[in-house]
């Protein structure tokens, strides 16, 4: 029994640590070749709502926890609202919806290859090919 408690406490601790890392570690990235300077959180929010075309956003899949946290904290809108906004743009054919990727590694690869793209990933995926322009608090 005592041992079980210990395991549970340990598991809870690890879980909390894991969640904290995921939450604390979201960064917004552009290609290392991009000449984009630091963008304000307001500008990033407008890009991911499709309002501003300063850069082209790329997304993680909808099921992603990183994605959920990014939209909640940076775009400051719930995803239903974001989908409604993008639907307006997509169904006019004026703008394409963001490409979606399954993992942070794929986002890093895409962003590194195209200096017009902007993405968000867990900081653990960041490498030399991309640069961090904003760290989500």
């Amino acid at each position: 029994m005592k041992r079980l408690n210990k395991i549970m406490i340990g598991a809870c601790f690890l879980l909390t640590l894991g969640l904290n890392q995921a939450r604390a570690g979201i960064v917004v990235i552009v290609s290392a070749q991009s000449n984009a300077r630091n963008l304000s959180v307001e500008q990033i929010s407008r890009i991911f709502q499709g309002k501003s075309n300063l850069m082209t956003p790329v997304d993680l899949y909808r099921s992603s926890r990183i994605r959920h946290d990014f939209y909640t904290k940076v775009v400051a809108l719930d995803e239903a609202k974001v989908i409604a906004e993008w639907s307006r743009l997509v169904f006019t054919g004026k703008v394409q919806a963001p490409k979606q990727f399954a993992s942070g590694a794929e986002v890093v690869e895409a962003v590194a290859a195209d200096p017009t793209l902007i993405g968000y990933v867990d900081s653990s995926f960041v490498n030399m090919t991309v640069k961090v322009i904003y760290t989500v608090k």
């Binding site: 899949y61 989908i83 639907s87 963001p98 490409k99 979606q100």
Partner: peptide, 8 residues
């Protein structure tokens, strides 16, 4: 609505 080009 969102693009998943590889899958499509």
């Amino acid at each position: 609505m969102y693009r998943s080009p590889a899958k499509t």
